[in-house]
Each structure stands twice: as structure tokens, then as C-alpha cells.
């Protein structure tokens, strides 16, 4: 991976989250575009890396915090998860799809997805990469760009 140094991270102000789920939709759309490029669109369930929840009147998104001491990275048996310039990043090629990262994530924002290659089924983890490819060319992460109230902010 080649994670730029100046990458911005996400923070949320729950009081400004309207629960519209535009962030989920934007994240899913970006994934759909990636899956299309990889030739697996239609062969894999699209699950966003950000989830808006509601408790009482409070609505707020759950998203990867890129923990400085990340359980997912530390416990990955395949060493598929690493930390580069503060970003916790998953190497899909190394991922075995064992699901340990999904289990240990304190925010519940790592999911597993399966797709067919020939007659075999491959399962891999999915997690937020802060849209580093976008950020490295001066664009905003999809969820942040889509947030109409900017309850999501970049720091």
C-alpha cells in the first residue's frame, strides 16, 4: 500500500447527524464502482463501512477509528492488516477471511463478504481505508463528501 502522510481522519458530531444514511449510500456506491472494476459486481453483497445507528433520539454513524492500538491488526493471523501513517489498512490479497478482525473490532465496522471465483468461494474482510486513493488526489472521502450537515468532519 502507499498511504500518503497527509491523510485526514473522520470525526463525528452526533448532535448534527440527521440519520439520513447518505454516508452509507456514498460508501456503498464507491464500493460498487470498485467491485465493478474488479469484475465482481453482482457477485458480492455490498455492505458499507459506515453504519448509522439510532438510540432514542440520537443518531450517529459508526465508522473505523483507525485505532492506534488496533485489535484487528494485532490479532490478524495472516498479517493482512497493517498500520501505515496512522491508517489501519487491509491487504485483500493476504486476507484469509477468518473473521477474527470482525469479532474484535470494538466499533463493529469490519464485515466479511464472499464472492465466487470459478467454483470456489472467497471470503474477505472489508474495512474503511479512508478513501486514501481519493484523498491522495485531493478529493474527499465518500462519506464526508455526502454528509449534508457535515456532522462528519475531517481532521
Amino acid at each position: 500500500m502507499c498511504i500518503p502522510k497527509e491523510l485526514k481522519f473522520l470525526v463525528v458530531d452526533a448532535s448534527q447527524c440527521m440519520g439520513c444514511r447518505n454516508c452509507e449510500l456514498a460508501c456503498s456506491s464507491r464500493k460498487a464502482a470498485q467491485y465493478q472494476a474488479e469484475g465482481i459486481l453482482g457477485n458480492i453483497r455490498i455492505v458499507p463501512n459506515i453504519f448509522v445507528g439510532q438510540n432514542g433520539l440520537t443518531k450517529t454513524p459508526a465508522y473505523c477509528r483507525h485505532c492506534s492500538a488496533a485489535f484487528c491488526k494485532d490479532l490478524c493471523p495472516a498479517h493482512a492488516i497493517s498500520q501505515e501513517n496512522g491508517v489501519i489498512i487491509l491487504d485483500k490479497d493476504k486476507c484469509l477471511g477468518c473473521g477474527i478482525c470482525e469479532q474484535v473490532c470494538p466499533y463493529g465496522v469490519i464485515t466479511l463478504g464472499s464472492f465466487k471465483i470459478g467454483d470456489k468461494t472467497k471470503t474477505i474482510a472489508h474495512k474503511c481505508d479512508l478513501c486514501f486513493d481519493q484523498q491522495s488526489v485531493g478529493k474527499e472521502p465518500a462519506c464526508y463528501a455526502a454528509c449534508p450537515t457535515k456532522a462528519l468532519a475531517l481532521v
Binding site: Q16, C17, M18, G53, K59, P148, T149, K150
Partner: peptide, 28 residues
Amino acid sequence: MKPLCGFGEQGICCRICMKGPCRINPFG
């Protein structure tokens, strides 16, 4: 269905024409 979209809850989602849909940021 939760979270219910706050723009609809507050009545500030407009789907009346095809230029939109528009929503007004209540915190702007």
C-alpha cells in the same frame, strides 16, 4: 428502519421537482 431520516422527520426534504431532491441543513 432505524435510523429514520431526520430530514423527513423535520419536513425539510423536498421531492417536489426533479432538480432535487433537496434537503435543508438545519445546522447550517
